[in-house]
């Protein structure tokens, strides 16, 4: 019972944080709130019995991605305005809120309608629990001798999948190096006309 209570409370916090992120206009505060959002979700992953995922989310979401976003903010802030307005998001002129709200409302309603048929939270007889997962739980020890099932599935049963994921991470690193790996070109005006030829 207590874990359901923690679950409900943390999810409510997450929802409140996300609305705060949506409504704020100071980008610096938004990035900090996003770090808190990640930390809350790491806690929630622990409550839902996923320590490996919580580990990753705490290190990645609250650590690396916050640092990267702060670095981007430092690179993209406008220097024309005063110090107070450096990180301020400008109000959008072209958009009215009603069309996005309608899209989001209709999509959300359709998705909520879809949850009527989903098996309840934590149901041990749900289809997701009865097929391949049961095999992993019963045979991991005799197949691989590794007690941590997540590691066994990650590296052994689904090793091909993980190879692809590592390749994606590597490719993203290469792409970022191509985009912003060199020093910044001296004259910012010429960059636009030359397109992609200015990678140093």
């Amino acid at each position: 019972m207590i874990d359901i209570l923690i679950n409900v409370t943390l999810l409510a916090f997450l929802a409140i944080t996300s609305v705060a992120i949506l409504r704020m206009t100071n980008l610096f505060a938004i990035v900090m709130l996003y770090g808190i959002f990640s930390l809350l979700s790491a806690g929630l992953f622990v409550v839902m019995d996923a320590p490996d995922v919580a580990f990753t989310e705490a290190a990645v979401g609250a650590g690396i991605s916050t640092v990267l976003m702060l670095a981007t903010l430092a690179l993209t802030r406008s220097r024309k305005r005063g110090h107070e307005g450096d990180y301020e998001e400008k109000p959008s002129r072209a958009h009215r809120p009603w069309l996005p709200l309608a899209v989001v409302g209709i999509t959300g309603t359709a998705l909520v309608y879809g949850t009527w048929d989903i098996p309840g939270f934590g149901d041990p007889n749900a289809p997701a629990q009865t097929h391949v997962a049961r095999y992993y739980i019963e045979n991991t020890m005799s197949d691989t001798g590794v007690p941590n099932m997540v590691t066994a599935v990650l590296a052994s049963y689904r090793g091909f999948d993980t190879l692809g994921e590592v390749a994606v991470v590597f490719t993203a690193g290469v792409a970022v190096l191509l985009l912003i790996g060199g020093r910044r070109p001296k004259s910012g005006a010429k960059v636009k006309s030359e397109g992609g030829e200015d990678e140093a």
């Binding site: 990753t56 690396i64 990267l68 997962a133 993203a172 690193g173």
Partner: peptide, 17 residues
């Protein structure tokens, strides 16, 4: 169920990249 944990574990790192 360990399978979603594996999928999401890798998805988080790919997501930050």
């Amino acid at each position: 169920n360990p399978l979603p944990h594996v999928l999401i574990l890798t998805a988080i790192v790919v997501g930050v990249a």
